[in-house]
Design a binder for these strands. Sequence first.
DNA 1: CATGAATGAGGGTTCATTCAT
DNA 2: AATGAATGAACCCTCATTCAT
Lengths: 208, 208, 208, 208
Amino acid sequence: MAYRSSEKTRQKKDAKRTSMMQAAVSVFAEKGYHSATIRDIVKEANVAIGTFYFYFPDKETLFVHLYEETADFLLQTIEQGVKGQSSLPKQIQAGLQSYLNIAIYEPAIINLLLVGGIGALPSLAEKRLAYRDRLTSIWQNVIEQAISANVIPEQNSRRIAELYSGAFDEVVLNLLLYPEPSIEASPALLDMINFALNAVGYRHSESD
Amino acid sequence: MAYRSSEKTRQKKDAKRTSMMQAAVSVFAEKGYHSATIRDIVKEANVAIGTFYFYFPDKETLFVHLYEETADFLLQTIEQGVKGQSSLPKQIQAGLQSYLNIAIYEPAIINLLLVGGIGALPSLAEKRLAYRDRLTSIWQNVIEQAISANVIPEQNSRRIAELYSGAFDEVVLNLLLYPEPSIEASPALLDMINFALNAVGYRHSESD
Amino acid sequence: MAYRSSEKTRQKKDAKRTSMMQAAVSVFAEKGYHSATIRDIVKEANVAIGTFYFYFPDKETLFVHLYEETADFLLQTIEQGVKGQSSLPKQIQAGLQSYLNIAIYEPAIINLLLVGGIGALPSLAEKRLAYRDRLTSIWQNVIEQAISANVIPEQNSRRIAELYSGAFDEVVLNLLLYPEPSIEASPALLDMINFALNAVGYRHSESD
Amino acid sequence: MAYRSSEKTRQKKDAKRTSMMQAAVSVFAEKGYHSATIRDIVKEANVAIGTFYFYFPDKETLFVHLYEETADFLLQTIEQGVKGQSSLPKQIQAGLQSYLNIAIYEPAIINLLLVGGIGALPSLAEKRLAYRDRLTSIWQNVIEQAISANVIPEQNSRRIAELYSGAFDEVVLNLLLYPEPSIEASPALLDMINFALNAVGYRHSESD
DNA sequence: CATGAATGAGGGTTCATTCAT
DNA sequence: AATGAATGAACCCTCATTCAT
């Protein structure tokens, strides 16, 4: 009997777990790691405190897990965008477009990754580093492909990628301060693309 | 008698005050606002808890004050560097050089501004915004001068400045992860300058 | 399942709440507002510190609430006593009897109202005034009825009532200093009744 | 040399001591024992904290001393008033007049004795008792003289005196709530005298 | 004598976490 | 599974008191 309903039970459980995690992302993003309390999270999720500890071992573990998962999602989305293109400008454009989409439709993700837990948790430091590293690697790859294709001159691809990562984040963060970020997104995207292409010495040809 | 040699006494008090503030910067930079306790700070400063409250009204006020003061110092230092030069490349070079110097010799300042209190304190949000705004304004000025001088083409100077700010920060943050940041500083500086000049369409002439 | 037998649970919670409030009254009455610590109260109640804050928002709110509730109880008890009688002597006697009963069986109440929080809390000042006002009003009513009934001469009923209130309190407070207050209660009661009746010019007739 | 100026020094010292005590009475009366801080007191007296501890051993000792001294002053003043008269009505009138004078011109004294430290300090309890005892004794004496002179019937003079003490205090306390206590003082005085005389069965004759 | 910088015990309060139901 | 009452370590801060100058 029990195992018969295990299917439905599992789904229900996963659903509740997921809803709690969404609540947690929302609260962490809004208040930051330390100011967000377990009570805040369970209230947002409409469950009892005890329920939280049934699904998650503790606050820190959840946060770190959320951070990793969220970073994964963001990175994969950007990677997807980049992977679908072959020319340097289009790769940059697609990657940034993906990034902006997430920023606009899920700003909590950006807040979680760039604001919520920075400097709050020693155990998060390495996760943050890993995230920055992977993000930088995406751009580094793009640049190295362009160098290999002789589209741009030889240069320190790692450093360029770091500069890209930081530059784009700053713009995105500022974008979210607008009352209607989606309106400002297009011009910002164009500015970022031009900036990025110029920065690596890309010569605008006929296309694009 | 007892008329306090207010000269020496005042000096001593100021000295202690300063030393406590340095201790606070150090602890805040290391642990972040919330994880840093008053006990941590007074232990670092070798004073009693009550002494902290003799010099400062409370934890939050001190932190915000430290943040503002530190931001001021950093911004003025960069501004000094920029102001001493006239050409675009030299202004960027001087500004970044100043920034790197602080990063290397006072890494706690960088941690305080870019890591320690991010997302920890509502009252800090506006201070952070003001800091980013001023930092961006420095680069924006530089760019607008270059545009006026016809050294680079017309472009959205504000956005470029934002991209600069974010890009440089990312590199500086990564620089501090090195065991010996000062060694890596030179190549990083060159990379940043080239990146920044290219990004705004500056054509390298004979000099520099 | 887990649907909380909210009946029993609620009752238990209320019981604990009540027991904690009694502990608080006892400690406040014994030490006064400021000298009573939350730690004292929870120790008396055999619970942990956190439990206090689960049931009450903070020390001051609880104290004020306790003060009001206790004053209500005392005033209603006296009013009950008075209301059951119609002649002046019997009203005074019944009111004082009720007062003495509380003083003897719940001396903490008297200490809380007349000693514990006097001058300790600005927010209590108005509550204290309200309590004195209501207490005085009880006696004022009694006196005005007697005046209306031509049992005693016209006089400033408010002032008389104030004098009653202060006079009775002093005797009650002194009563509680005895090792066995209940023994002294009877003669004190008689003295107070005679005093009160004489003071308003009541002529003793055959009865009583 | 030192002992030559000892006269003036002594006077100066006493003056400062006195001014600090006045400041202390004022602050204690206004805020109550616990809420009054040494800082409050020295600020009011325009001296440094260290100076406080040169003149007084500690806060508690000072407060108890102040309480005793203030009680002494009040009691002696009332006694003076009573002693100057011989008939019961005049003694009561004179005693109350003295009491009211102090209440109106030095309300801080009343606050200190009846409000400021009640229930705040275990060591004060006995001092308070002693004060109440002496105050009651004054009235008890008055009553016993009247009984001896056959002006009023035999009765429990101690209890009457207690009732007097409490009754008068209540009226005085209420008096001080008026915006202009001195205006209300006269009618209050008359009411109290009549009340007190009636209460002990005094028959109004030709005089007074 | 006078000063005020320095001390640290102790108080109120928060909140992550546990566990009996 | 789910609940929420209960716990207590740890935090920020106050303030009486001391002592070197």
